[in-house]
Amino acid sequence: MSPAFRSNLLQIGLPVILALGLFMPDWAIFLGIISLAKGLVVLGLMLLWRTGLVSFGQGLFYGAGAYMVGILPQYLPITDALLLVLISAVAAGFLAFALGFLLRRYREIFFAMLCLAFSMIFFGILVKSESLGSTDGFNVVETSYLGFVPEEPIVMQRMLYITAAVVAWFACLFVNRYLGSTMGRLSRAIKDNELRVEYLGFSAKRAVHFKIVIAGTMAGAGGALAAIAIGHVDPEMVWWIQSGEFVFVTILSGVGNVIAPLLGSVVFEILRTFAIEYAPQAWQFVVGGCLLAVIMFLPGGLWSLIERSKEGKDDGNSSR
């Protein structure tokens, strides 16, 4: 894909998602927020994936962000949605930073498994915490938007949608820049052969650590947004099935572009909603079947479709 097209997409991205928010029917707004929130997690996974790393425990940071939103207002008088999301994201980022010292030493399936182990320990702690409602979880307080508390619930939802869109857009911009930087471009090299990268004088471990922190921060932001939208947090957000779903959406989306995770996330949420509605006895089957179909026939994910249609017009003048 041409760099010009990529940056165009990013520039027009925010107004387009925001405009969508104004015209979407009420029920779609919620789906939109959840898609953006989970899209943020997937964006982080995409970053790791480009280095050849897969986390089967990203629910850990997603859940950490969500629980921060739930717990924070009980101790501090903060109800502003954007502020809550930022603080939760930073907190999740710190958690990722701490765990990163261990995680960065591992690759391949061991990385995936260690992430899984950490997330399951966190899950166990939450289930044992009766003051946090154990598996029932607890409800999140109502949020405000820059000092403004909307009367109508649907206005509230749209405000949250705008917040989510802004956060997601900034995250995309950031990741896009990072991928263009030297460290970002090293991703592929680390995936292909780490020793060579080290011989070039770069620390692969440090690069991986940085990615873990970024992915954790974005997962925390996603979890925080989801918690506000749902109005409730519980340990299922941390469970390995949830983490598996994030990896699933990463594959569905493809890692060709920073927009892909958001797009894939929307497609997945729509797919699941309708699978549940029209095939209540077979929705897992439909979802699993779609994953298989994508892996077999569309190895680049949904994004490769857009890329291909674009390539046709570009006369094949494209680069990844």
Partner: peptide
């Protein structure tokens, strides 16, 4: 994916 399908 096979696991999800087999569960159903």
């Amino acid at each position: 994916a096979s696991f999800l399908m087999l569960e159903d």
